[in-house]
Design a protein around this nucleic acid. Structure first.
Lengths: 145, 145
DNA sequence: CCACTTTCCCCCACTAATAACCACTTCTTA
DNA sequence: TAAGAAGTGGTTATTAGTGGGGGAAAGTGG
């Protein structure tokens, strides 16, 4: 293990973002994420982090789509907010300020493993999300299947 | 035996969780569970433990679904509560504190083998469960079939 | 082109959380 | 009933995470 292969990200980690926009990637996840990865605006109010190989997979799917205006608009936003990230010596990354404000990140953040990506949420938004969705989890599952 | 294959878990084991959240996996079950396994929030107030192969089976069903908002919400909650576990030298595992509070684990716990998974119950909740359900066991079976 | 400002890293120090270690008790089994 | 295995609990050592200062690099304006 160690290479950013087909590993599955799971779990929830509570950490803090400091005044310089730095946040730590939990050590348990660092190996699976690898040294080159992409952070970008996600869906539903959070940020997405993909390993570079996973990022390539996603982009190649979109590339195949016909070149409509909707595709161009989506690609502009999706790609313009994406940034290549690296760790500092302490295992932290630097989140660009546009992404910080998009995800409404204050001090307390939640890092969530969601299969092929990490998500970064503000603690506040995550708690709201959980409150709104966890009670009917089995219903959600039923309607999915 | 030994590899976390298609083994069936049965039986009930009474053990204790200590102040650090450590609890032993009964030695009879360790071989069948393998060295890599997942603990997560279960249903009805207990925790579930799956061998990694069993976990993969479960996840692979969800993975194939189209990427809708419902799926994203479900996966976030489902995966965020799961944790990869390992044994310490004494055969114990460490249960994350969110799961301890969810399952209301105090000192005395019950570990139950339920076919393809283990369940961890607080002694208290287990006793209540048994009291409420054992009397009408034949009725329950009848209504199932 | 130069001076000034701002941003970004690297480094160090401190604290908290986790894992390793070890000693002891209880249960099994021969 | 003795010996080994299984289970429990606490201490110590190590790693992970947080926060801030200072220097290099890049960006801005005269």
């Amino acid at each position: 293990m160690g290479e950013s292969g087909d590993n599955m990200f799971i779990g929830q980690y509570n950490h803090t973002i400091d005044s310089k926009g730095r946040i730590i990637i939990p050590s348990k996840l660092r190996n699976d994420l690898g040294n080159n990865f992409i952070i970008t605006r996600g869906l539903d109010g959070c940020l997405f982090i993909y390993s570079s190989s996973e990022w390539m997979n996603i982009i190649s799917k979109y590339k195949e789509l016909p070149d409509t205006k909707e595709k161009r608009n989506f690609m502009r936003i999706f790609l313009s907010l994406a940034t290549v990230c690296e760790y500092d010596k302490q295992g932290r990354i630097n989140i660009p300020s546009p992404l910080i404000s998009y995800a409404n990140l204050k001090k307390d953040c939640v890092i969530v493993g969601v299969y092929d990506r990490l998500e970064i949420w503000s603690r506040e938004d995550w708690d709201i999300f959980i409150t709104n969705n966890s009670s009917n989890l089995s219903d959600t599952l039923d309607s999915l299947l």
